[in-house]
Design a protein around this nucleic acid. Structure first.
Lengths: 130, 130, 130, 130
DNA sequence: GTGGTCTAGACCACT
DNA sequence: GTGGTCTAGACCACA
């Protein structure tokens, strides 16, 4: 079990359990959490972030439902094999979804394909902070 | 005051008043509702869609707060001048937001800029239904 | 009975009958409507401005209640003597009211008396259009 | 979350939700509510003032739309950073508006600039109660 | 516990 | 007829 530097924002529109899910997924994706490795325990996370155990529990439960981790009674929560691949697939769907939103809005705004590509290029050069 | 063919879905995640706002904005944007023209009255919309007057009222109130229409007691709800321009600006912000999401996800997924542009091209050729 | 060039805005927050009252008062004040003179008839105003007779009626009724005009059954509406003086008194009250609002807001905003006077000077030099 | 001594009047022309907005803004402005601090909860306010939860909700929603607070599901309503600055800007606009009204009325009443400044001075020395 | 959405119905002001 | 405000009570999502 590894120290994970999870960070949550109480003011974000994103629910806390979603913030947790996202950060754990990112940790799996960039190798910070290896396959088979244990995620930090429910109570550890809840205590450090000063949030309810129920909230953390919900995050872990959904991660398990999506196939990224396996919660074992009394043992903890472990990263599943193939988690990285699943995540990459999930991300591609997210990217498609975001681009579709952009394309729809661009059509309403009468923006041409070229303008959209140009805008994408500008954003690709930027340092996007969270 | 024009018949507007508003449609709402109760099963959507999107709150009803947001659906209304979105559709009225789209009507303004594509010229279905002209500047100065009257939107359908609160009660007309409420009755036709079989929803509460208050829900429609909320949509109109927010549209007014955002500067797209003007509600006048005893007379109705009118499309403001410059509404189209405001909407176009708002849309560009939405597009940027969506593209930023896409770029962030692409970086996590180790997708190259070229792959992202290619994906965008594919989507631009598609017929995106709502 | 004189032609008065009344103008109303349907988009204003100010109710129509209030707009009428205000314009007739201004006409009395600047001598456009003389003491004893007849105001334009209910139906004339209603027809020219394409508004309801009831709305004009309300304006005239309130002007009578405030002592500026006298409605005579079948004869019309006439400007009362002393209307100008009454109006000037009313205006002073309005000025006081507006200044009180300004002073209250200035205190909340921690603006000094000097800054308030300076702001007033700036506005006094401006050409304030309606 | 702090006890706030909110007071409402049912007889006022001012809608209840506007009275609430105004008082919370004033609390932010004079430091009674600090940045990041939680406002009293919807239900607490509603219960104490014996008004509908929806009315309070509306006040909070508009305060959020104007950028003064942030409502978070399940956690409460928090004062935003920069709220004080925004409020001060808003107040200056209000002051300008009030002074413009005063200047317009003064011109109609043939009051000189000096008389207006004198009147302002008198009011500045007064103790203006709500 | 928190805030978010929706309803059905009431009363008011303005046209 | 129009929009504006308020209520009481319901159900949902989040902590």
């Amino acid at each position: 079990m590894r120290n994970m530097n999870l960070i949550i924002s109480n003011r974000s529109d994103e629910p806390i359990y979603i913030q947790l899910k996202r950060q754990i997924k990112e940790a799996i994706l960039n190798g910070e959490l290896q396959e088979g490795e244990a995620c930090p325990s429910l109570r550890t996370v809840a205590k450090e972030l000063r949030i309810s155990v129920l909230t953390v529990s919900r995050a872990y439960a959904e991660l398990e439902a999506e196939g990224f981790v396996k919660n074992v009674q009394g043992r903890g929560c472990f990263v599943m094999t193939r988690g990285q691949e699943l995540l990459r697939e999930q991300l591609v769907c997210q990217i498609e979804g975001a681009l579709i939103q952009a394309v729809k809005a661009a059509r309403l705004a009468d923006l041409s394909s070229e303008e959209l590509h140009d805008l994408l290029d500008v954003l690709l050069e930027m340092d996007l902070k969270d």
